[in-house]
Design a protein around this nucleic acid. Structure first.
Lengths: 343, 343
DNA sequence: ACGCGCAAACGAAACGATTCGTGAAATCCA
DNA sequence: TGGATTTCACGAATCGTTTCGTTTGCGCGT
């Protein structure tokens, strides 16, 4: 592999001149040509390691996600990457596969590789650990949380207004006359799941509906209208069936992510339950489905693209050293595709 | 940020000794302690850039995928990452979002960042370009193709035996008595799609069934039993409907990836067609579905985990400098979950 | 007590870039 | 044409490691 020295020898110019030109500086036209020639002839390419050693910048961003098997994150990543790329940064993506230890390890590895910034959809990691990571180098590591936040950790974040997302969904079901409404949420240690549950609770509260409202089981107990899943297909499928197997099933259902929505829809099909007609239904994320299933489903759509873009923009600013008023928290609105069933 | 020099000063030992110890060398017990103390006290962490500059190794692997929004790749990535991680490597994932230019760019960027090896699910890039990339540094860059290959590019690859996958699927349909069988394949510039189509053709051929066999349209023309989709939900949905809208629809269908299978299943539900009963059906990848839908679907399952693992193993060997007999091509068998419909 | 051998510590030279201060050349204007 | 001013090239130091060849020092046997 040829180095800048070789280029220097080949062209008869000094190291400094070559370097300057390569970084966008001005050189005499004649020299520009000689350098170009030399670079071409030698197949020279800068050694990023050497450069980074001097400049303390790698022009890379580390991205850490819970998984890469869920389209939601794929979509966020895609626009995030685009935003960063336009500014000359490359994003390196890691998944921690929902694993606690791996989540921390990936963050550490990225830091050790001197990324210039980090985008993180956090789950298990604690505020203390995150602070440690953020301060694990000279200057504070630029960092943006997406989708999920960690309580107690003050940080730029781009999240969905999850509370109002489910609030709106449930509100719509209430307005359609439902009073006995179930919800399938995700693991409560994930901030989004928790917020979505709160939105559900608050909607019922605001409309004066006791969560325990509705028929009782024959043993006098209320059946639990909040079912906790694991954000996967299986959970949606199983919890939907749980609901339907109740003595007094809810008359409407809200399902709070893509995979679980798919699971619930599948289960419904199997039981010949027409969603939107036989029972009220609002799903999450599955916008393709909502266009295709008939009758169309009501779906909460999350602005994944925007989320990735905003995250990128803020991170870029931080990396550029702009100091914004400290914790920039952007709460994006979701959009409720509202399809009222008509005969 | 403190450097190894600081550690040296703090501990009173020389640079060389510290470095040696940090890289697993032997030092006197007393010194080991002093170094540990110093490292702890100063919060020292090695600078990977400086290290890489000297060693010419970064202990990182670049992974380039067509997209991150498809569970298939997510699953491959997960086991690949695990395999590499166990050997001390970190994998950095990039997606090219099906884009030609981006595919090349990502590869280049990775090379410039001095990854020690590359795993690639290739689509648009040419053999020539790949060779250029592979030789764009002193020694040949270790490289493994997964899932998709590029004709003319000689390289270690882990792929599915796609031909026999569809062959087996179609064979099963034939054995069940079908003679008028349709297939939905992906874009033919993707090697997997092409191979799957060939498998379909060959099965029909081997069983003496003319692809043109079956009833003709009223205008005397045969209708096309090979529909080309784009490997997405939409395609599966649309092409399924295309098939069913034919004058003489096929009596059985093979759908050749996850998203298109989901699309087809959705369309079938909408038309009240029971797959496996009303028409013969074999899908791809959607193993969760096959367990859940009733009657269960016949599904071709691809060994994604194994694929990631094998890719990792071979890459590790290459990076370690082992020279295996040149192009290692591993062709993994898919598994046909065969559910015969019974009343 | 002496020297031998081995293990461990050391000094210094890289690795391949950037950058700062300086000086030479080119350009300008009167 | 000469001096002022700008432009551009250069040398040398530096970033934080690893590593090679050498020296130091410890323990042991006789």
């Amino acid at each position: 592999m040829s180095t800048i020295k070789d280029v220097s020898k080949f062209s008869g110019l000094s190291l400094a001149t070559i370097s300057k030109y390569l970084n966008g500086g001005n050189v005499r036209d004649e020299n520009r040509q000689r350098i170009d020639e030399a670079v071409e002839a030698l197949g020279y390419r800068v050694n990023r390691n050497a450069r980074s050693l001097k400049t303390n910048r790698t022009m890379t961003v580390g991205v850490v996600m819970p998984t890469l098997s869920v389209p939601f994150f794929g979509s966020v990543l895609s626009s995030l990457d685009e935003t960063l790329r336009e500014a000359g940064y490359t994003s390196f993506v890691c998944s921690y596969d929902f694993d606690r230890d791996l989540e921390l390890e990936k963050l550490r590895v990225l830091c050790n590789n001197n990324v210039d910034g980090i985008v993180l959809a956090a789950q298990h990691v604690s505020a203390k650990e995150l602070n440690e990571i953020r301060n694990s180098r000279g200057s504070e590591m630029p960092m943006v949380l997406v989708d999920r936040t960690i309580s107690g950790f003050v940080c730029d974040s781009i999240v969905i207004d999850n509370l109002n997302a489910t609030y709106g969904a449930v509100e719509q079901l209430i307005n359609a006359g439902h009073r006995h409404i179930g919800i399938i949420v995700g693991p409560l240690d994930i901030s989004t799941a928790n917020e979505r549950m709160v939105g559900y609770r608050r909607a019922l509260e605001d409309y004066g509906i006791d969560i325990e409202t509705g028929p009782r089981r024959s043993d006098g107990q209320h059946e639990d209208l909040i079912q906790i899943g694991r954000y996967d297909f299986e959970s949606g499928y199983r919890q939907f069936n749980n609901f339907m197997d109740m003595e007094n099933p809810p008359t409407a259902l809200c399902v709070t992510n893509y995979d679980m929505t798919m699971g619930a829809v599948t289960a419904a099909h199997e039981r010949n339950i027409i969603l939107g007609k036989d029972i009220g239904f609002v799903g999450f994320d599955a916008v393709d489905l909502c266009r295709i299933v008939s009758p169309p489903l009501s779906i909460v759509e999350q602005p994944t693209q925007l989320m990735g873009q905003k995250a990128g923009e803020i991170l870029l600013k931080r990396m550029a050293g702009e100091d914004l008023p400290h914790p920039q928290v952007i709460r994006l609105k979701s959009y409720l595709h509202n399809r009222i069933y008509k005969e």
